[in-house]
C-alpha cells in the first residue's frame, strides 16, 4: 500500500497546471488535472484526492465558486482540503467580498500569482491536518 498523496489541479491555464503540477510532482505528490469545473468535479468524485487546488475564473468567471459548492455536496469530498488560487480580486476589482468572510467553503484562499514554496507548505499542512483525528477543514482559512 502506497502512502503517496494525490493532488487534483482544476485550472484552465495549461501553463499553470504544468508548472504547479511539476512542483507537486517534485515534492512527491501524484498529480491529476482538469481544465474546467465540471470535468474537475467528475475527476474529484472518481479519484477522491487528498487535496484539490482550484481556480475560480475558468470558462465562466465564477466557475470555481460553483465547483467548490458541488465538491462540498459530495459526502466523500466534504472534508477534503481545497486551496482556491485565483486572481479574481485583481481582475474584478468591484468584487470586494472577503474570502475569509465565511461564504467560501475552502480550506485556504491564495491570490495568484502563487508563491510556490508557500503553496507546497500549505498543501502539506492541510493534508496532515485532514489526516489527524478530529481535524476539520471547512472554514479553516488560517494563513
Amino acid at each position: 500500500m502506497t502512502n503517496t498523496k494525490h493532488v487534483l489541479i482544476i485550472d484552465d491555464d495549461a501553463d499553470f497546471v504544468r508548472a504547479i503540477g511539476d512542483l507537486f510532482a517534485s515534492a512527491g505528490y501524484e498529480v491529476a488535472s482538469a481544465s474546467n469545473g465540471r470535468e474537475g468535479l467528475d475527476l474529484a468524485k472518481k479519484l477522491l484526492p487528498d487535496l484539490i487546488l482550484l481556480d475560480v475564473m475558468m470558462t465562466e468567471r465564477t466557475e470555481g465558486f460553483f465547483t467548490l459548492q458541488q465538491i462540498r455536496a459530495v459526502p466523500e469530498l466534504a472534508a477534503t482540503p481545497v486551496i482556491v488560487a485565483s486572481s479574481i480580486y485583481t481582475d474584478q476589482p468591484l468584487f470586494k467580498v472577503n474570502p475569509d468572510a465565511g461564504w467560501l467553503p475552502a480550506s485556504l484562499f491564495l491570490p495568484k500569482p502563487v508563491d510556490p514554496a508557500r503553496l507546497i507548505r500549505e498543501a502539506a499542512r492541510l493534508i496532515a491536518a485532514a489526516a489527524s483525528p478530529g481535524a476539520t477543514h471547512e472554514g479553516d482559512n488560517a494563513r
Binding site: T62, E63, F65, F66, T67, Q69, G102, W103
Partner: peptide
C-alpha cells in the same frame, strides 16, 4: 457566488424539456 454563506444554493436549471430547482454546477 457569495450566497452559499447562507446555505446550499438551489436555483432553476434545465431538466430535459422543462426546468427544476436543483444545485447548479456553473452560473
Amino acid at each position: 457566488s457569495v450566497l452559499p454563506a447562507f446555505g446550499e444554493l438551489y436555483a432553476p436549471v434545465r431538466r430535459g424539456s422543462g426546468y427544476a430547482f436543483d444545485r447548479p454546477v456553473t452560473w
